[in-house]
Computed example of a mutant assay.
Amino acid sequence: MRKALQNPENCAVVRTVGYIGNKWKPIILIRLLTSGKVRFGQLASKIPDISRKILSQQLKELEEDKLIIRHSFMEKPPRVEYELSSLGKTLIPVLKAMFDWGNQLEEPDKRCIWEPVID
């Protein structure tokens, strides 16, 4: 007899989806993976369909979850850069697996053109 999952919050898959499971977070993580350190404006231009407000909100959440690092420079004008943290880099195989699995579901002409750079 199977034991029922008492609390979905204890499920590792549910926990992972809680960190990266919305429309924009995987895209932001992929852009940071392929671009390295990047300024807010550069990141916004690489994801043209996201509003600056939502991008800012998602970056704050990713930083709170320790998946990205925010570097602030006290310059005139102020400069901020974002990059994947060590923890964020551990998501590379997860994102790659999601990419590969998702591409199997689409016709070849509709597939995502992103090819993750895996070190």
Rank of each mutant, 00 (worst) to 15 (best):
N103M: 10
K96A: 12
I54A: 11
E81H: 00
I27S: 11
K96E: 09
I118P: 02
P8G: 05
I50D: 05
K89D: 04
S35E: 03
A4S: 13
I20R: 04
G41H: 06
S86P: 00
R70L: 06
E83R: 04
E75S: 15
I92N: 04
K37Y: 07
W114M: 01
R111M: 09
E61F: 06
C112K: 04
F40R: 07
I92H: 01
E61Y: 08
G36H: 00
I113T: 15
T16E: 09
S51G: 10
M74K: 11
V13C: 09
S35A: 08
S45K: 13
R70E: 08
A12T: 02
V94E: 03
P78S: 05
Q104F: 06
E64I: 07
G41M: 04
R111T: 07
P108R: 12
L32M: 05
S51L: 03
L87P: 00
P108M: 08
L55C: 03
I20T: 07
P77E: 01
I68V: 15
I47R: 00
P26I: 06
S72R: 12
V17L: 14
E64D: 14
W101R: 09
M1H: 07
S85D: 09
E106A: 12
H71L: 10
A97Q: 04
G102R: 11
K96Q: 12
W24D: 06
S45L: 08
F73A: 02
K53P: 00
I27D: 08
L67A: 09
D65C: 11
P26D: 08
G41C: 04
K110S: 12
P77Y: 05
R2W: 11
S85G: 09
L67Y: 09
V14C: 10
T34M: 13
I50F: 07
R31P: 01
D109C: 05
A97R: 05
D100R: 11
C11L: 07
P78D: 04
L105D: 08
N103D: 10
V17A: 13
L91M: 03
N7A: 03
I69S: 05
D49T: 13
M1S: 11
W101L: 13
L84R: 02
V117E: 15
L62N: 03
S85M: 06
I50T: 08
N7V: 02
I28A: 01
L43S: 09
L29W: 00
P26H: 06
D65R: 15
I69M: 08
Y19M: 12
I92D: 01
G102N: 13
A97D: 03
Q42N: 11
I113D: 12
K23Y: 12
D49E: 12
G102H: 10
E75R: 12
E81A: 04
A12C: 00
F99A: 10
Y19F: 14
M1D: 06
